[in-house]
């Protein structure tokens, strides 16, 4: 009896550890569950006030630099805009001539990044727009430079954004001008890789990568990045194309969500 008591006392910490490990693993594998995700966003939503002061400091410290960058970008865009305005008129006239359908306009909702996560790498952001603003699960998220990720969980006033840098994120993309299509996933820092690109596809360094027409959630032709290297695999009919993202994920503070892309 005494032996059993001793054994129990000895094995209690190990048993407790095993129970905690099993519970944790159960939670990890239930992370994709919609109810659990909603509960997480709800709790984070309620405690989002914790991030506000740090977010404010972050915004203030980069404000002057950002104003400078925005001013130069604004000037560049103004010049581009003048050229584009004349091109638009010509484009419209030619489309009418060819009886093409008009392209859809996207509805953007601006939002601030509330938290970049307290884990050892960046894979998700918390933003201050939720279902009250019309944000839905799987809506595409962009920075001013290009695609950043997609919405994975929504509460009333906040949403969780899965970033391109998340290991599980995949995006259907095309490389222009060759129009070769492939599946993109994150590699490291600002670098992503495109798989399933046919070996015969004519891809060059500097080519532009856009979202393809095949994605269920992302509208086509959103900017993603530019090609920096091409790797041929001797044992495959495909090649791997590496690209550098336009959006710098480590310095993002403002994001845009494309809502209502399916015309609902």
């Amino acid at each position: 009896m005494a032996n059993a008591g001793l054994l129990n006392e000895k094995s209690l910490p190990v048993s407790t550890l095993l129970i905690c490990i099993l519970l944790s693993i159960f939670l990890i594998f239930s992370s994709e569950n919609e109810k659990i995700q909603s509960f997480r966003v709800y709790t984070t939503d309620k405690f989002s006030f914790l991030y506000q002061p740090f977010n404010w400091i972050d915004n203030q410290s980069f404000l002057m630099k950002r104003v400078e960058v925005l001013a130069s970008e604004n000037l560049k865009l103004n010049l581009e805009n003048q050229i584009l305005s004349s091109n638009e008129l010509e484009n419209k006239r030619l489309r009418e001539f060819l009886d093409f359908k008009a392209k859809r306009d996207y509805n953007f909702i601006g939002s601030d990044v509330i938290s970049k996560g307290t884990n050892s790498n960046l894979n998700a952001f918390l933003i201050n727009q939720g279902s009250n603003s019309g944000v839905k699960k799987n809506d595409p998220v962009l920075s001013s430079k290009g695609v950043v990720g997609k919405i994975i969980a929504v509460s009333d006033d906040h949403s969780s954004v899965q970033l391109i840098s998340d290991g599980n994120f995949r995006l259907s993309v095309k490389i222009v001008p060759s129009e070769s299509e492939g599946i993109m996933r994150w590699r490291s820092n600002q670098i992503c890789e495109i798989f399933e690109v046919k070996k015969t596809a004519k891809v060059n360094i500097g080519d532009i990568v856009l979202t393809s027409n095949l994605s269920s959630y992302f509208p086509p032709d959103l900017p993603v990045g530019k090609v920096i290297s091409i790797h041929d695999k001797s044992d495959s009919f495909n090649k791997i194309v590496r690209l550098e993202l336009y959006a710098d994920l480590s310095t993002i503070n403002q994001l845009f969500i494309i809502v209502d892309t399916d015309g609902e």
Partner: peptide, 14 residues
């Protein structure tokens, strides 16, 4: 739950 830690729930607990 309280601090935003990305997409996994339970990893910190583990």
């Amino acid at each position: 739950l309280v601090l935003f830690t990305g997409t996994y729930l339970g990893l910190s607990s583990l």
